[in-house]
Simulated scan of single mutants.
Amino acid sequence: MLSEVLKIMDQERSIAVTEIAEKLGWTLQRVDNTIAQLENMGYIQKREIISSSCGMGGCSGCSCYKGTDCQRCQLISEDLYSWVITDRGKSALH
């Protein structure tokens, strides 16, 4: 179960949780639980892409970081992040 999700994450460099669920025929809850387990075991690590608090200086990827308003950041209603497979996760794959 864990290895199936980890393999998909390794093969598909950018994939949504909904796509993982579709590929495996699982519910989103099951995929979310599996991802949480993989994170707790140190196989994957969350990497923030954009923060919803960006307008408060939480993002260094746009003009907000310099204290000016950014229309892009004002449109963000939730944090965006990706998962990165750690060295431990890569070892588990091979």
Rank of each mutant, 00 (worst) to 15 (best):
residue 56 M to S: 11
residue 60 S to R: 13
residue 36 A to G: 02
residue 70 C to Q: 11
residue 37 Q to R: 12
residue 7 K to T: 14
residue 66 K to Y: 15
residue 71 Q to M: 08
residue 94 H to K: 06
residue 76 I to D: 04
residue 86 T to E: 04
residue 94 H to E: 11
residue 14 S to W: 01
residue 41 M to A: 12
residue 68 T to P: 00
residue 82 S to Q: 09
residue 35 I to L: 15
residue 79 D to C: 03
residue 92 A to S: 08
residue 67 G to P: 06
residue 13 R to K: 15
residue 26 W to M: 10
residue 23 K to N: 06
residue 33 N to M: 04
residue 63 S to L: 13
residue 11 Q to M: 05
residue 57 G to E: 03
residue 29 Q to E: 11
residue 34 T to I: 14
residue 44 I to N: 01
residue 55 G to R: 08
residue 15 I to Q: 03
residue 51 S to E: 05
residue 77 S to N: 14
residue 30 R to P: 00
residue 76 I to L: 15
residue 49 I to V: 15
residue 30 R to I: 00
residue 67 G to K: 11
residue 45 Q to V: 15
residue 78 E to M: 12
residue 25 G to W: 11
residue 7 K to C: 05
residue 68 T to S: 15
residue 82 S to G: 10
residue 93 L to P: 05
residue 55 G to Y: 04
residue 73 C to E: 08
residue 93 L to K: 04
residue 79 D to N: 14
residue 47 R to T: 08
residue 89 G to C: 03
residue 18 T to D: 12
residue 94 H to A: 05
residue 17 V to G: 02
residue 37 Q to D: 10
residue 72 R to D: 11
residue 35 I to M: 13
residue 61 G to E: 13
residue 91 S to P: 00
residue 82 S to I: 15
residue 44 I to E: 01
residue 91 S to F: 05
residue 37 Q to E: 08
residue 75 L to E: 14
residue 80 L to A: 03
residue 69 D to R: 13
residue 17 V to N: 04
residue 63 S to M: 10
residue 68 T to F: 10
residue 69 D to N: 09
residue 22 E to S: 13
residue 83 W to M: 06
residue 81 Y to K: 01
residue 19 E to F: 01
residue 11 Q to H: 03
residue 53 S to K: 14
residue 58 G to W: 00
residue 55 G to W: 07
residue 62 C to W: 10
residue 17 V to A: 11
residue 37 Q to G: 01
residue 93 L to Y: 05
residue 17 V to K: 06
residue 89 G to H: 00
residue 34 T to L: 08
